[in-house]
């Protein structure tokens, strides 16, 4: 079967390119960030001074801002995304199911830059109004202190929440659909209400649900443009949701082209490397959790095969 071997090698080579790209990301980014890795070591992630002119690089504010904004987004998005998943999978009337899924997943297809533009001109002024309205007593608290600018952690968290909702809801819906009907029936037969039966299904699907939420978290970690445009870009470590802060992706977007100094460039690449590692770990974990429940679920917009698969089963 010589023809077969040629075919196998031929297509396999292209597959290897795909694998090579992923390896290249890790390799290239490590190689290019060697100067700062060698110069600062772990201190790079422990210190807060970011002064490209003086050649002093501490990336703590960025990792702080990235994790803070993503967790904030997660807290805002997860309940809503799960509500959407439950409603579209279990509760809504059949005729409006498809349109609702289409509409909620449309949220995932709007470009980040458009969210950013909308963020600057609509969301940020609204958040500023909220900040100005906040009573002084509240603003004494560390969580709500800081300037009333509109741009800041709250705006970033809100916009990220909107952007990750469709990812979590789409996968959570697939996970819920994979729960055997017998589980819900078992609960109903024991006198469960609708809520109690759905809770039984959620409990059965808990690993997959956690995976769906983590997938959204992974998306939030790497989101760049919209966050860059509304977070205020101040490298500070603060608990305040009103204060302008910074994220890893945002500092790369803002400073990369201006990084004339090799050390500055290396610092930015190292931030990229760690961002890559973080998203990789979160994504692999979430996928393992999701796969244990619903092997086909991939998230919105990615899976053109989904309807065909549904029809085929």
């Amino acid at each position: 079967m010589r023809g077969d071997l040629g075919f196998r090698v031929g297509t396999g080579l292209f597959g290897l390119v795909l694998i090579a790209i992923v390896v290249a990301i890790g390799f290239e980014l490590t190689r290019e960030s060697m100067p700062t890795i060698q110069k600062f070591g772990l201190n790079f992630w422990r210190t807060q001074t970011w002064d490209p002119v003086a050649g002093d690089f501490g990336a703590l504010p960025f990792i702080w801002g990235t994790i803070y904004s993503s967790i904030l987004a997660l807290l805002l998005a997860a309940p809503i995304a799960l509500g959407i998943a439950i409603f579209t999978a279990e509760l809504c009337p059949e005729p409006i199911q498809r349109p609702l899924i289409f509409l909620t997943e449309l949220l995932a297809s709007i470009p980040s830059i458009v969210y950013g533009l909308w963020g600057i001109f609509v969301l940020v002024p609204a958040v500023r109004a909220l900040e100005e309205w906040a009573p002084p007593v509240l603003r004494q608290l560390p969580l709500f202190s800081g300037p009333r600018l509109g741009v800041g952690m709250l705006s970033a968290g809100l916009i990220l929440a909107i952007m990750v909702i469709p990812f979590t809801s789409s996968v959570a819906r697939e996970v819920l659909k994979s729960v055997p009907a017998a589980q819900r029936e078992g609960a109903y037969a024991l006198g469960a209400t609708r809520f109690e039966a759905i809770r039984a299904a959620l409990f059965y699907a808990r690993t997959g649900i956690v995976g769906a939420v983590m997938l959204g978290f992974g998306r939030a970690l790497g989101e760049t443009m919209a966050v860059t445009m509304v977070i205020g870009n101040q490298p500070t470590v603060t608990a305040s949701i009103f204060a302008p802060q910074y994220t890893m992706a945002a500092v790369i977007a803002n400073e990369f082209t201006e990084a004339a100094d090799p050390l500055h460039l290396s610092a930015l690449v190292e931030i990229g490397l760690v961002l890559f590692a973080m998203t990789l770990i979160v994504n692999v974990l979430s996928r393992l959790l999701i796969w244990s429940m619903a092997p086909g679920a991939q998230g919105p917009g990615v899976d053109a095969a989904a309807p065909a698969k549904l029809a085929a089963t």
């Binding site: 795909l18 694998i19 790209i21 992923v22 290249a24 990301i25 290239e28 980014l29 992974g218 998306r219 970690l221 790497g222 989101e223 760049t224 992706a249 790369i252 977007a253 990369f256 930015l268 690449v269 990229g272 961002l275 890559f276 998203t279 990789l280 994504n283 692999v284 996928r287 991939q298 990615v302």
Partner: peptide, 16 residues
Amino acid sequence: AADTLNGVPSIVIGVL
């Protein structure tokens, strides 16, 4: 690799 690449932040692709 495809699933991994799909989850890589686009800014990181830019850096690569």
